[in-house]
């Protein structure tokens, strides 16, 4: 991808700008019409601006849901209260994120960082992102969108005729099945598929994805991009397996595709990669 600013060569004029800056020229200015805060990188800010958008405010959403005692015993099937708490915490966190966005007049949130911690009795969900709005100051219509896409991805989708409309996610916690000792003994020297295990995990993964899908449908999306599937055992209950899937829901915007035919580029830098916003965040 090439982005605005990638080929930005420090020009002669920048020396003038820097000299002006050194002489304290900026002290005569009073800043913008409103103080903005954002965790976007300068590249993301530039690329957003090139499609006519700008950051408004750093916004956050958080929620904690409780998980009742006794849930983590090694039973069978899905651990529904954990799945419920997970979904609940995410839903409430998104709601407060959108609330903050509305309050500052943003049309949506890009670059949402999602942090979910599952403890024995608590699911903590925290989301932080930058609320953005068109630079022309138009009023938002409808619910603000939340998206974990970067400012670059947002601008690309925008140019390609798509709009992000929200986050979709699904999660499922399941108990690992148990094998009886006699079965385990019989199978110990064989190459054999453990079909009940396969089915249990397959089903759980499918239901996490299905929940994500039905959420996307409720948002009347046409697709979900950048889906990430995360899975693993729960630290304090190793028989419990967590599946989570999330991504950004998109829809045709009705604007024409202005991206055009891709062009191939050969980069002459050594491993030259675009600047990664994460490095600013200490990541």
């Amino acid at each position: 991808m090439s982005f605005p600013g990638d080929d930005l060569q420090p020009s002669e004029s920048i020396r003038e700008k820097v000299a002006h800056m050194a002489a304290g020229g900026y002290l005569a200015h009073t800043g913008g019409r409103r103080g903005a805060t954002s965790d976007l990188s300068i590249d993301e800010t530039l690329v957003l601006h090139s499609v006519g958008w700008e950051p408004v405010e750093l916004v956050c959403g958080a929620s904690s849901f409780s998980i009742p005692a006794g849930v983590w015993l090694w039973n069978q099937g899905e651990i529904t209260s954990a799945s419920y708490a997970y979904a609940g915490a995410l839903a409430r966190a998104v709601a407060s994120l959108q609330g903050e966005c509305r309050a500052v007049g943003g049309h949506g949130i890009v670059g949402v960082h999602l942090e979910v911690a599952v403890e024995r009795h608590l699911v903590n969900a925290v989301m932080v992102g930058s609320a953005v709005a068109p630079a022309d100051g138009s009023r938002p219509s409808g619910q603000p969108f939340a998206s974990d896409l970067s400012g670059r991805d947002f601008a690309l989708l925008h140019q390609g005729g798509w709009d992000p409309i929200g986050l979709a996610y699904g999660a499922a916690f399941v108990n690992a099945p148990r094998r009886s000792i006699s079965v385990a003994m019989r199978q110990s020297s064989q190459n054999v598929e453990l079909t009940n295990y396969t089915e249990a995990l397959y089903a759980a993964r499918e239901s996490a994805m299905e929940r994500m899908q039905s959420m996307a449908e409720r948002l009347s999306g046409q697709g979900v991009v950048g889906v990430r599937v995360s899975e693993g055992t729960v630290g304090f209950a190793r028989h419990a397996i967590r599946f989570a899937a999330w991504g950004t829901v998109i829809r045709r915007s009705g604007r024409p595709d202005r991206l055009g035919e891709p062009s191939m580029v050969v980069s002459l830098g050594d491993e030259s990669t675009a600047f990664d916003a994460a490095s600013l965040r200490g990541g």
Partner: peptide, 15 residues
């Protein structure tokens, strides 16, 4: 259920 919706783990660029 996947009729009018697609899901994909492709990044936006890839998509």
């Amino acid at each position: 259920e996947l009729k009018n919706l697609f899901t994909s783990d492709l990044s936006v660029n890839e998509f």
